[in-house]
């Protein structure tokens, strides 16, 4: 016959335990509520600002706005040269910062000896990610524009923003490489792979998701940067396009556009907002909305990509 416990715990004890749990759980509630409040107030502020921009800029959301050059007459002005300029600059930035950043990250993680020099480089790289962007602009003005004589060109702007983006790519590369478990790495070495084979066949493919996320977040930062581009002398009023990168005759690709003068979206916006006429402020609001949408799209894409790749590779 089963025995039933008559007195497992004294009743007093039980109510004390329950009171204690209740007290401890209060902390959960307080923390969750505070977090919720902060997130909500920030999100709502951002949404209101964005909505305000959209409402202000609404009359200018037409196809003409995207296909017109800037003009003295606000209603005819558009952002054609700005969005093409931004795109071309970002292409340069991408092709410079991504290979260089990944290579630097791989070198620092896999090849460099761990000593005080690598520590110093590590601290420096992390610090660079936080340096105000105007400093990069000044560096670029001295180095690219004056020393290298690259002029106030798309190439200079692309290189400048690449400098800005480089630390982000390096840090995200190193972090995703570190996330690869030791036992997977050892498995690759154990079958007789060289360091380079391990890097090419395993390290880079497995850290791809994290690297790509870093790249896109870096690009989203670069697209909104104004200060360094102004410093190197981007024009504020430009009514022509750079030469097309693609031509119909051989060699089909040309690089004259790299040397062309340009403007970018944030500068166009800055220019319009500094005009006295209200009609130009509408244009500025519309441009602001376009930049925010572009940034949000890029970040959203990065999150989606990371999610998809992480689903395939789970350690």
């Amino acid at each position: 016959m089963a025995k039933i416990a008559i007195k497992a715990k004294n009743n007093n004890d039980l109510s004390e335990i329950r009171a204690l749990i209740k007290k401890h759980k209060k902390n959960d509630l307080i923390f969750a509520a505070t977090g919720m409040f902060v997130i909500a107030s920030l999100t709502i502020t951002l949404l209101i600002l964005f909505l305000d921009l959209v409402i202000d800029g609404y009359p200018r959301f037409t196809l003409d706005f995207f296909s017109n050059f800037p003009s003295r007459r606000a209603l005819k002005a558009g952002i054609l040269s700005a969005w093409i300029g931004s795109s071309l600059v970002l292409i340069v930035t991408f092709f410079v910062a991504v290979p260089l950043g990944i290579a630097a990250g791989v070198y620092l993680e896999e090849y460099a000896k761990k000593n005080w020099i690598s520590d110093l480089i590590e601290i420096n790289v992390s610090n660079l990610a936080g340096v105000p962007s105007i400093i990069y602009g000044l560096l670029a003005l001295g180095l690219f524009v004056y020393s290298f004589g690259l002029g106030q060109s798309i190439l200079t702007a692309g290189l400048t923003l690449a400098l800005l983006m480089l630390p982000i790519v390096i840090v995200s590369t190193r972090e995703s490489i570190r996330a690869i478990p030791v036992h997977i790495r050892e498995a690759a070495f154990a079958v007789g792979a060289t360091k380079w084979q391990v890097v090419i066949n395993h390290v880079i493919p497995y850290s791809y998701g994290g690297i790509l996320t870093g790249v896109i977040i870096g690009m989203a930062r670069a697209i909104g940067e104004t200060a360094p581009v102004i410093t190197i002398g981007a024009l504020t009023f430009i009514a022509f396009l750079p030469p097309s990168p693609i031509s119909t005759s051989a060699p089909f690709l040309n690089f004259e556009w790299l040397e062309a003068a340009f403007t970018v979206l944030p500068i166009q916006m800055f220019n319009w907002i500094s005009r006295p006429q209200h009609a130009f402020h509408v244009n500025a609001a519309a441009t602001g909305a376009v930049i925010i949408v572009l940034t949000a799209l890029m970040n959203g894409f990065a999150i989606r990509l990371r999610y998809k790749i992480r689903k395939k590779i789970k350690w």
């Binding site: 050892e186 498995a187 154990a190 079958v191 007789g192 060289t194 395993h202 497995y206």
Partner: peptide, 28 residues
């Protein structure tokens, strides 16, 4: 390592296909 191979404590396949896992040592 090309002469002496190793199996580890925790199964550690590469996040690749079954085929590529086995073929990797040969590809190397």
């Amino acid at each position: 390592r090309m002469r002496i191979s190793m199996v580890f404590q925790k199964p550690n396949p590469f996040p690749k296909s079954i085929y590529e896992n086995v073929a990797y040592g040969l590809r190397v």
